[in-house]
Amino acid sequence: MNTARKNMDETISRKLLKNMLLCRKFEENVQYYFSLGMIHGTCHLGIGEEATAAGTCGALLPDDDMFATHRGHNAAICKGIDINHMMAEIFGKSTGVCKGHGGSMHIADKDVGILGANGIVGPSLALACGAAFAHKRRNEKCVALAFFGDGATNEGIFHESMNLASVWGLPVLFICTNNTYGMSTHISKVMKDTNLIDRAVPYKMKSAEVDGNDALLVYNTVKEARSYAIENSEPVFIVEDTYRISGHSKSDANLYRTKEEISEWKKKDPILNLEKQMLEAGLCSTEEIRQLEAEAADTVKAAVAYAIESPYPKVEDIYEDVYAE
C-alpha cells in the first residue's frame, strides 16, 4: 500500500494534536499520582507513542471495534473514552469505566468500540478477527482493529490470526506499533529479519509501513487501509515505527538503553512534530498551541479531581459482574 502524503487538513490536524496533547497530559498525571502512591498496581505508559494512537484511532468511526495492548491509555483516549471515568478506573474507583475491576491494563468501553486493553501479548489479533467476522456476517461497513507491539509478532497467535483473517477475508486492521523493544529486549536480539512488514508476505496480506511519529501520515495510512478492508473484505497489516520514551513499566530502570538514544528520539517527539508541521503550513499559531495545551491540562486536572473525589467500590458487590445475566 502506497500512502502519499495528503494535503494537511486543518480540522484533522487540530483533532490529532488535541488528542495527543490529551494523551500526554493524561499520562504525565498518571505518572505523577503513581509516584505519590495514589495509584497502585502497575501501569504502562506510552509517552512518545501518541501519534500511533491518535493517527490510528482518529481514522476509525464510532462503530469500528478497537482492541488495545497493555499500553492502552492513548488508544482509549483517542477512540473517544470518557476521560473522567478512565482516570477514575486507574485510581481504582467505583466510578471507573470498568467499576475498578480492570485498572490501567484493562481499560474498555464497548459503548465507544473499545473492546479492551489486554494484559496478554497477542490475543488482540484473534479477538479482532472475531469482531470483524461478526461485522462481515451482518454486512456492516466497519472494521475491527487490533493493536499489538513488535514483540507480539513472535507469538504463535500472531501467525494464527494473520492466517485466519487472510484466508477468511476478514476486515481487520492489524496495527503493529513497533517501538523496537519487547520490554527491555531489542528487536535485533529476537528476530533474524527485523523488517516487520515482511511478516504480511506469507499471508498475501496488504501491508504498509509508516513513520509512527507522524500523526498525519499514520492517520492517512489507516484511513486508506480502513476503506480498503471494508471494500475488499480483507485484512491490512500496518507497521507504525515509533519509540517509547517512558519506561516499560514502573520497574523499568532503563538499564538496556542509553540516555543518548532516548534523547535522540525526544527530538522526534510526535507532538512537536505535528506542531511544527501545522505551524509551517500556517494552520495555527504558537499561541493557539499553548491554548490547546492549557485546555488539555485543564481537562485532565478535572479528571484527576473527579477520580480522587469518587468513592471506592465495595467488596460486598464483588460477585455482581463475575457472570452475566
Binding site: P123, A126, L127, G130, A131, A134, G156, I157, S161, N163
Partner: peptide, 16 residues
C-alpha cells in the same frame, strides 16, 4: 489454529 478460532469465537461473541 485453536487459539485463533477460539479467540475469533470470543470476539464474535462480544460483538453479539
Amino acid at each position: 489454529s485453536e487459539a485463533a478460532f477460539v479467540g475469533c469465537g470470543i470476539g464474535a461473541a462480544v460483538e453479539g
